[in-house]
Amino acid sequence: MDVIVCVKQVPEVIDADLKISREGTGIEKEDLVMHINDWDNYAVEEAVCIKETQGGTVTAITIGDDESEDVLRRALAMGADKAIRIDPGERELDGFVISKILAKVIKDLEYHLVLTGVQADDDNSGMVGIMLAETLGLSHAAVVTGVEPEGDLARIRVELEGGMDEVSRIQLPSLLTIQTGINEPRYVSIMGIRKAGKKELTVIPVANLGLSEDDLTPRTRIEEVFLPPETTGAEMIEGDAASVAAELIKIIKEKGVSI
């Protein structure tokens, strides 16, 4: 079973202090640590697990600058066989354009499954995967937490809201957007990444793909990025740990909980 997995490099933002860029439509990225989008890490692991049980190959693809090759090398170290980076140059990208670029490259490859993450941790939009599926004419499912290939079909689990999964059968070839928790992504060492440097990594400039101007025109545009609107927010409890603890116990008791 040949699997293609789409990966994106995103900034680590959880512990970071984000600064809005001067133009006001993005963030300052210089000081941020870049890493593989969490969802894509699970997607790579799933692709490699499928290869290990079913045979076949795994190809990892990203659209990004040369720094984003780090996520491809990581995917190669996890067990992908080949990697492709599409260089977008200075082009402005949105989910639509990204899906069109990916589709143009993937349509000429051999595959039974295409995996993406549910969403990217920067734009949080969750659209690239399913747009890609529709452009390629593939069956698809979003927010997948289980995949078991069964011949020309796969039995899949989709996570719904409220602690409910939906099991269904889907015809292959198919595109699935992978949800976190579907597996346990393996650890990759620096050594492993260095060794994977020998594997094939192809770079394609987007200009070579012959996409129409329409396909390369974003459908949406960020006009402004802003800090979350002010709310009354939490009443902050300051002080040393002991006095904070005393205050918290007092509050909890006041709210009618006996501790």
Partner: peptide, 23 residues
């Protein structure tokens, strides 16, 4: 913007040719 909506809307966007913003 639910699991089902996330499975439908991007495909419908490509099919209809209409732009989409999610969530």
């Amino acid at each position: 913007h639910t699991s089902w909506g996330m499975d439908l809307a991007p495909a419908l966007s490509v099919k209809t040719g209409l732009p989409l913003a999610t969530d």
